[in-house]
């Protein structure tokens, strides 16, 4: 898709945790979305799946009951539970990768934005409470509110670009920051930056007013 232009990829520990199935849902959502945009990371993710397959071969066996095979064959006689087909409606101008569309709606106009000041808009996505996921829309040249974070924060750019002390992040690029990082992402001047962010703890804001707003804005 846009795979040739991606410069910032998923680190190995996140790829492995995704393959192992130990990431909170919000982080898995960002990983799956990045994999949909990045062939290189998709191939790496498949090799971590293969590690799981090799381990499965050697896991201590737990005996199945005598009747289990017959019971499973009987299950197969029942009609197939048909999975709901994913809606394929697409905006002509811009489409969200499928894993994200499953949470945010397939059209950009489906997203329920809320203003959070300075022209920045945010939409919280529904995931399990182990971590949060939200989309942000930041006007050209505007900074995300100054923040650090308690835990890990992962940002995936979907459209436009932002830059911080660590570099320039464009569509498909992923930025991972842990609690030690205080950074100020600023959308580049040419167009608005659309991104999706997962965080495993409430963000810690460095100035008082945003901290007071934090419970209201859920950021």
């Amino acid at each position: 898709m846009m795979t040739d232009t991606i410069r910032h990829h998923l680190p190995d520990d996140l790829l492995m945790a995704y393959a192992a199935g130990s990431l909170p849902e919000a982080f898995s959502l960002l990983v799956a979305t990045h994999l949909s945009m990045c062939d290189r990371c998709r191939a790496a993710a498949e090799s971590y799946d293969a590690v799981g397959g090799a381990l499965l071969e050697d896991v201590p066996e737990a005996a199945m009951s005598e009747a289990s095979l017959a019971a499973t064959l009987a299950m197969l006689q029942a009609p197939d539970p048909k999975p709901a087909r994913r809606a394929k409606t697409r905006d002509s101008a811009f489409t969200l990768p499928q894993p994200l569309a499953d949470y945010a709606g397939s059209r950009l106009s489906d997203i329920r934005w809320r203003p959070v000041g300075m022209g920045v808009k945010q939409a919280i996505l529904r995931t399990s409470r182990t971590a949060t996921a939200r989309m942000m829309h930041i006007p050209p040249g505007v900074a995300m509110p100054d923040h650090g974070h308690h835990g890990m924060e992962m940002t995936l750019v979907l459209d436009g670009a932002f830059s911080d002390a660590f570099g320039l992040y464009r569509a498909g690029d992923i930025a991972v920051a842990d609690a030690s990082v205080d950074h100020v992402p600023v959308a580049t001047d040419d167009k608005a930056c659309l991104c999706v962010i997962a965080a495993d703890a409430r963000l810690r804001f460095n100035s008082l007013i945003p901290r007071l707003l934090q419970p209201l804005l859920r950021i």
């Binding site: 199935g21 909170p24 959502l29 990983v31 799956a32 979305t33 894993p99 995931t127 399990s128």
Partner: peptide, 19 residues
């Protein structure tokens, strides 16, 4: 098996990459 485990033990969805 991994996806079933997430469903079973954590009651979470497992986002998968686009086909």
């Amino acid at each position: 098996a991994r996806n079933r485990r997430i469903d079973l033990l954590r009651r979470e969805r497992r986002p998968e990459p686009e086909d």
